[in-house]
């Protein structure tokens, strides 16, 4: 797979504060990459260096296999975290202007803008002024403006914040489709459920440094399947089993965290002996739990 972005030991600091430290990552074509981290971890700083808004103090950034250059920007679509549009411009004029800046001809820009507006169910907003639209609608306009020039690399900083579920799914599906077509999508977010569903690769950064990186499957497989969900009828005495680190018990439903390397099968046997088991599931930890464990553990230290 072609590597679209490569950061090699990149560092950047503002004033006395290190925003990014020694960060390395690669984003491949046709993948969805999740850049995760708590607020202020350095996600936006990292993205800004990727697209040349700021320059790294140390390390190397390459876009499409070359050091950063102006021409490369036409192959990138960037949706910043803080959205901005010209408020008094008509939606269609605005979309055409932004697409022209990225190298499209006026006619082609207009054709694509109309197409996209129809696709995202907002054709009737095209002739309105931007300031007349709701926040969610404005966000969709900005989403479209990021994609009009069919960028190979799509960078989205918190793309779904502030959207209702229907529109969030609409945009998610659009991104998945673009990924299937071979575009690379970089997400920055702290919404773990979305990342878990959408991303193939992740990089978790905390205080400017990568603390966890790799393929989603691979990262998850590093963590034990040590969560157990049991649904049962009868005695809950099995909750005293030696393998259990902690447990929450509701009526006929227990959520259990096992001790490291504990034998789940032995727990099942014990439970089955005293109660009727209707569900016994060994679950891998969610990305959210991994996130809290990794980041929370560090900040406690």
């Amino acid at each position: 797979m072609e590597i679209l972005v490569e950061l090699d030991k990149v560092s950047k600091s503002y004033e006395e504060k290190a925003a990014v430290r020694d960060l390395s990552l690669k984003i491949e074509a046709g993948s969805m990459f999740g850049l995760l981290g708590p607020n202020g971890a350095g996600k936006t700083s990292t993205i800004r260096m990727m697209i040349g808004i700021t320059r790294p103090d140390a390390g190397k950034v390459s876009l499409f296999g070359k050091p950063f250059g102006d021409g490369a920007l036409r192959r990138v679509g960037y949706l910043p975290e803080e959205r901005g549009l010209y408020k008094r411009m008509k939606v269609i004029d605005q979309l055409v202007f932004l697409a022209e800046l990225r190298g499209l001809g006026a006619l082609e820009a207009k054709r694509r803008a109309t197409q996209w507006c129809e696709r995202l169910q907002m054709a009737d907003a095209m002739d309105k002024k931007t300031e007349e639209l709701s926040k969610g609608m404005q966000q969709k306009i900005q989403f479209i403006s990021t994609l009009l020039h069919d960028p190979e690399l799509i960078i989205m900083d918190e793309p779904f914040s502030g959207l209702d579920p229907v529109n969030a799914v609409l945009l998610q599906d659009t991104l998945l489709e673009l990924k299937k077509q071979g575009n690379a999508v970089l997400f920055s977010t702290h919404r773990m459920d979305q990342v878990e569903k959408l991303c193939d690769q992740i990089c978790l950064i905390d205080r400017g440094a990568a603390v966890l990186a790799g393929g989603m499957r691979e990262v998850k497989s590093r963590y034990e399947r040590n969560r157990v969900i049991i649904q049962f009828e009868g005695d809950d005495g099995f909750l005293q089993h030696a393998a259990i680190a902690e447990s929450k018990s509701y009526a006929g439903h227990a959520e259990i965290k096992l001790k490291p390397h504990a034998d789940a099968q032995d727990l099942l046997r014990t439970a089955a002996a005293t109660a009727t088991i209707t569900r016994f599931e060994l679950v891998e930890p969610s990305l959210e739990e991994i996130f809290i464990e990794t980041v929370g553990g560090r900040s406690d230290a």
Binding site: I51, L73, L85, K87, Q142
Partner: peptide, 17 residues
């Protein structure tokens, strides 16, 4: 100032110099 407060300039700067 408007481009700055509306933050559209981050989009513009990611597109052109």
């Amino acid at each position: 100032v408007e481009e700055k407060t509306s933050r559209i300039f981050e989009v513009l700067l990611s597109t052109t110099s």
